[in-house]
């Protein structure tokens, strides 16, 4: 019997690895990915607060609120680090509105539509509460959008954390939580340094992004990737040398994991955002960028410098009228090119 209990290494291993690349220079924070995901997966009881796909403004408190300071992940020696749970409000709350009161006869001119937090109080935080605030002083404020979902990590800390052995990697690299084995102890939520596991208080089990595996099995890209109107996203197997994800991550090395120092080896990669140019004191555009490189290093580590240098170099090459494979990849004139073999139609 004991030989049938899988080791964590077995639960973490996969034959291949699916990956997503997101070009942050093109993300406009429209939340289409968020809504595409919510419509598909989180309209069941107990999932109201969940946004498996989400977009927050950087710098900012993020989603769930202050996830970057909640711990989890591994230290440099690979030891698991203590983490914190998220609350309903951290996860964007589940606002209730007084529709009935406002829409009752005669009230429309007297009553305002007012949200109520799940706590029963007037909300003091919610999803995207600090949207577009960013940082920096006029005339050079800066921010960019950070679309996120489960990173389907190669060294997934949620798998290590689950005392039920309920979490495992599929052969395609997608990390899933077996809802039959999960007992809602929430060690996975503490362990995930990205706070991308959520607790369902109705089923009393933990849930997370499943990378739309029922679609993926039919050759259809995940909804967040496919529905992106900005063509910011690529999807495919990392070892598929023809795929955009392979070319951007492995060949051009311009797509980087978020917070690589967390030690989980994420499989969502970001093309770092190009900076808008700064104004000088006289209101004239300068050659300097507004987005401090140190801020980007804080998100993507030191490799962000070389990644941005490569993008700028290739952009200049293109400006000179020379061909650039990288620019062609990032432009993606045909959306099919972004999704390798996952170009099937969802309907």
């Amino acid at each position: 019997m004991s030989s049938t209990i899988p080791t964590k290494q077995e639960l973490k291993s996969s034959k291949r690895q699916l990956a997503t690349v997101i070009d942050l220079s093109k993300c406009m924070g429209c939340q289409t990915c968020t809504v595409a995901c919510k419509n598909l997966w989180t309209q069941r009881p107990g999932t109201e607060h969940m946004r498996w796909a989400n977009v927050a403004t950087c710098p900012g408190k993020g989603y769930p609120r202050e996830w970057e300071s909640k711990g989890g992940g591994f230290d440099a020696e690979g030891r698991p680090q203590p983490g914190q749970l998220t609350t309903m409000v951290d996860c964007g709350d589940n606002f209730q509105f007084n529709h009935h009161e406002v829409l009752s006869a005669g009230n429309a001119q007297r009553k305002k539509l007012e949200p109520r937090s799940a706590s029963g109080e007037a909300p003091t935080w919610g999803y995207n509460w600090d949207e577009d605030q960013g940082k920096g002083e006029w005339p050079n404020p800066y921010f960019f959008y950070m679309p996120r979902k489960c990173n389907h990590c190669s060294n997934a800390p949620c798998i290590d954390a689950c005392s039920r052995n309920a979490i495992y990697k599929r052969e395609d690299g997608i990390v899933v939580i077996d809802q039959d084995r999960c007992e809602g102890h929430r060690h996975c939520i503490e362990a995930c340094p990205y706070s991308m596991v959520y607790f369902n208080p109705v089923s009393q089990k933990s849930e997370k992004c499943i990378d739309c595996f029922p679609r993926v099995e039919k050759g259809i890209a995940p909804a967040c990737n496919r529905q992106c109107v900005g063509r910011t996203r690529a999807y495919g197997y990392l070892d598929d040398s023809e795929s955009q994800v392979h070319k951007l991550v492995r060949v051009w090395k311009v797509a980087l994991p978020l917070h690589p120092e967390f030690g989980t080896e994420p499989n969502v990669f970001y093309v770092p955002p190009m900076s808008p140019l700064a104004y000088d004191d006289d209101g004239r555009l300068t050659e300097a960028g507004r987005l401090p490189i140190e801020v980007l290093e804080g998100y993507f580590g030191p490799a962000v410098r070389q990644a941005l240098a490569t993008i700028l170099e290739e952009r200049d090459r293109r400006k000179r009228g020379e061909p650039s494979e990288l620019m062609d990849l990032l432009i993606s004139r045909r959306w099919h090119d972004r999704f390798a073999e996952f170009t099937g139609e969802p309907i």
Binding site: T7, P80, P157, A161, C162, N165, H187, E190, A191
Partner: peptide
């Protein structure tokens, strides 16, 4: 004792 089944719990 249970670190091999939950590193997080063992903390």
């Amino acid at each position: 004792m249970a670190a091999s089944v939950s590193g997080q719990m063992a903390l």
